[in-house]
Nucleic acid binder design. Structure first.
Lengths: 213, 213
DNA sequence: CGAAACGTTGATCGTCATCAATGACGGTGG
DNA sequence: CCACCGTCATTGATGACGATCAACGTTTCG
């Protein structure tokens, strides 16, 4: 859900401390700013230094689907450089964001020449596939209540909380439906009456998810 | 949907023609054979030489979700080597399959040493992310009828056809629901009365998908 | 022996009931 | 004005049950 990548962040810091940091700059984006646009070509690959972003697709019918929230050390725009295509999704800042902006061609060269970056990117892509697959599967095969519960657990674990709209987009539902589903969880005494705190221990919740049918 | 990777296949052929093919063998699997199992550790990375396989997750509640069908030149088991984890999903042969079996450690070394393989794997992962994301999004945000129509179009394009059970698992529904949805498409004169042929031209179908709301 | 009859099996579909999720609209309270 | 919720109606998707039909092998009888 909120993914981070400490290794990649520290790699970037070391890279900038060295001398061959050709063309890499630091960019800042205010909350809400969409700095990568679906269907367009990005001239930079970004590695987030600080802040939280969301990565989402907007469908023709106007609905948004958030794949993941990206935090410290996460990379965006790399798929497009690797495959030389237009951007798959939108990236927008949720909080204020600062990010290392690596020109696409510089990144392409680095990826070829620098074994460490290469390894980090491979691992990042592998992790991303894994998470996307796992989520696609359970969001298809379980009811929304289940998905929402998992989302709340992930949020609690990562010590963050997103806006209701963003959570709804992550679950691919409307805010109205989001509120309704919260009510169901409250009726089952899983979520606190006020706010979105989970009223059960992590073990109980795990058991609950496992026995869902 | 049915993905193939000619470049990777030809790479493997060249690799085996050379002399440093240490430990790589050719494996055969009969239809139905599950040769990678979710949650277990695979000792090999496979590159499919011939045949069609399905890649799916089985959830705790017994339902299967097929991510993709893999054909010639597609690779499996590489995520696990890159991230050193247990297998994310099951891979089962649909038709008779022959595949190059690369021991995990050999693959790991090749991936580091061989720039061409490295590039091919990066591109493959990037493609996979792209496709997984796109599909997750539209399967969440559109009704099943839409997803089924896209599946039929992809099948027609790739000149293959899968069993109803597999198509249903791809759509994350039961065969019963699959048949019901087919009936809806027939009532709208999109699918032929007998069989699963599409009764419209590719352009008409594209327009139909685009105007779906 | 061969043809008709029978039973089994699996795939499909009609129907009805139910559940999950949404849309619309209006009300309430900050 | 906006966030939230109660309510009602509707749609989307599923589950259950039974009927039908084709395919196939086996049995039975002339």
């Amino acid at each position: 859900m909120l993914r981070t990548n400490e290794q990649l962040l520290s790699y970037m810091e070391r890279l900038l401390a060295g001398e061959q940091a050709g063309g890499i700059t630091l960019a800042s984006f205010p909350p809400g700013r969409r700095f990568i646009r679906q269907g367009e070509t990005s001239r930079y690959v970004y590695v987030i230094r600080e802040g939280i972003t969301k990565c989402y697709i907007r469908e023709d019918n106007g609905k948004d689907y958030i794949f993941e929230f990206l935090g410290k050390g996460e990379i965006t725009g790399e798929l497009e450089v690797i495959r030389k295509t237009v951007c798959l999704c939108n990236i927008a800042a949720i909080t204020a964001v600062t990010a290392y902006a690596i020109p696409a061609d510089v990144f392409a060269v680095l990826l070829r020449r620098d074994a460490e970056l290469n390894r980090l990117v491979l691992e990042e892509l592998a992790t991303r596939i894994r998470q996307t697959c796992v989520r696609a599967s359970y969001q298809q095969l379980y009811p929304i209540e289940y998905g929402l519960l998992r989302l709340l657990m992930l949020q609690a674990e990562a010590q963050v909380s997103f806006s209701k709209k963003d959570m709804a987009d992550y679950l691919a539902i409307t805010v109205r439906s989001f509120n309704r589903t919260i009510r169901q969880l409250r009726e089952k005494n899983i979520v606190s009456m006020e706010g979105l705190q989970l009223d059960m221990s992590a073990q109980e919740l795990d058991a609950l998810l496992r026995r869902w049918e």
